[in-house]
């Protein structure tokens, strides 16, 4: 069962199964990869910036923390990492 990264609960690890590069701009896609967000990688959504919206989202990838917006997270499909 796959879910979109913008929909998942905080504090749990997820493995990226697919990234819909086509709905991201070239720059956005490249920056995601530069942050290490790519298929097969495990991420943990850690914080959301607001109680009113899903934006922005802070993710932990390995030893790094990055901020992205929900719009970009919506292009990322994940499954719970076991």
């Amino acid at each position: 069962m796959t879910i979109r990264l913008d929909q998942v609960p905080l504090g749990h690890a997820f493995r990226i199964t697919r990234v819909h590069w086509d709905i991201l701009s070239n720059e956005e896609g490249r920056r995601l990869r530069e942050f290490g967000l790519d298929e097969g990688v495990t991420v943990t959504p850690a914080h959301r910036g607001s109680i009113f919206s899903r934006d922005p989202l802070a993710l932990t990838i390995g030893r790094m923390q990055v901020i992205i917006r929900a719009g970009q997270a919506a292009a990322i499909e994940v499954v719970p990492a076991t």
Binding site: E28, V66, I67, Q72
Partner: peptide, 9 residues
């Protein structure tokens, strides 16, 4: 367009 926000912490 409303732009993205991608940044390392």
């Amino acid at each position: 367009n409303n732009t993205g926000f991608m940044m390392e912490m």
